[in-house]
């Protein structure tokens, strides 16, 4: 594969709820990853692991009560987005980087007609006249599979079905041809036949516009259908990062491995038990000293309890684990062996 140009780079992102010095909880704990030009990167992990906080930090949209470590960096075109002024961030949003939010109510203004919202965005960033803006909006809305675009532009968001609204959000997000689209669970609330439609549209548009996508999801099926590269998070940290084919072929982190075996298979017999991951995610207030996954891990050793693993190269792949999974030894319980 040819090396692509890096578009965005997150370096050592640490985010806290609450002020320094006070009792604050760490929501994101040293996240590193990059997104290349034209690439789809999937960010996966269980509820509460910090996916949305990470994504929102790119656009400076986290709650004001969330603070970042001073040396945290989000590099985009030679600038650190975490240090950017509000004015510059506003210019960036919707233009260079746009976002589809987990909560659709964030994305669309309920009081404005769809067409008005779209033309306003175009006029703000792309300085066209009203007529061309309207035409561009119409084209885009047709492109996402909405029939009768002229009429739909005159509708308010509440007049659309869930699937249509999601399509309008995609159209809005791609309207100004951004370099990066952040899509936070863009299809989670949708039915599976509508989800398939929308993912297909996203993929087509991504290729057409050569936009990079940060796709946040907890659906491993969606990851496998869409992503080039996958970043797996657990408890505020990146635990594994890999090419999508490599990851599904052989996950290295016991958590990733557990996630993959937790999904019941569609093909073949399905009478055997699913191998679930035991236990639950620790809360951000009570993270253990060593590995955050220790309590649930079947590969753990005493070292894991004491020393926190860091993301490191393991045979050309990145994983944060003292005992990465190797083929054929997936269910060895190390503690049992060592004790």
């Amino acid at each position: 594969m040819t090396k692509r140009e890096t578009l965005l780079e997150i370096n050592n992102l640490r985010a806290y709820a609450g002020k320094a010095g006070e009792s604050r909880s760490q929501l994101v704990n040293g996240v590193n990853f990059r997104i290349d030009k034209g690439e789809i990167v999937a960010l996966v992990g269980e509820s509460g692991c910090g996916k949305s906080v990470t994504a929102l930090s790119i656009l400076g949209l986290n709650a004001a009560s969330i603070e970042y470590e001073n040396d945290s960096e989000i590099r985009f075109h030679e600038e650190n987005l975490l240090q950017l002024s509000d004015r510059k961030l506003r210019k960036l949003r919707g233009n260079d980087i746009s976002m589809i939010f987990q909560d659709p109510m964030f994305s669309l203004n309920p009081l404005k007609k769809i067409g008005k919202q779209m033309t306003e965005a175009l006029l703000q960033h792309k300085a066209a006249d009203v007529r061309t803006a309207r035409q561009d909006a119409e084209k885009m809305i047709e492109r996402v599979g909405i029939t009768d675009p002229k009429r739909q532009l005159d509708n308010y968001p509440y007049q659309l079905s869930g699937g249509m609204r999601q399509r309008v959000m995609i159209a809005m997000a791609l309207l100004c041809k951004p370099e990066l689209l952040i899509a936070d669970e863009p299809t989670t609330a949708l039915d599976v036949t509508i989800q398939a439609q929308i993912l297909e549209i996203m993929k087509d548009l991504q290729q057409e516009l050569d936009v990079s996508i940060l796709l946040i999801t907890h659906d491993l099926g969606v990851v496998a259908e869409m992503a080039d590269r996958v970043v797996v998070m657990y408890s505020g940290q990146v635990v594994e990062e890999a090419d999508v084919y490599a990851l599904f072929e052989q996950p290295l982190h016991p958590y990733t491995n557990g996630l993959l075996t937790s999904v019941p298979k569609l093909e073949g017999a399905s009478d055997e038990r699913i191998s679930a991951i035991r236990g639950t995610v620790p809360s951000p207030q009570e993270l253990p000293k060593g590995c955050n996954f220790y309590e649930r891990c079947t590969h753990r050793s005493d070292r894991c309890k004491e020393e926190e693993p860091v993301l490191a190269n393991h045979g050309g792949r990145n994983v944060a684990c003292w005992h990465p999974v190797v083929e054929g030894a997936n269910d060895v319980e190390r503690t049992a062996i060592r004790n």
């Binding site: 599976v192 398939a196 659906d219 099926g221 259908e225 599904f248 993959l260 999904v263 569609l266």
Partner: peptide, 9 residues
């Protein structure tokens, strides 16, 4: 057919 399958292959 619409179900996303957890296998990029």
């Amino acid at each position: 057919s619409a179900v996303p399958r957890p296998d990029p292959k």
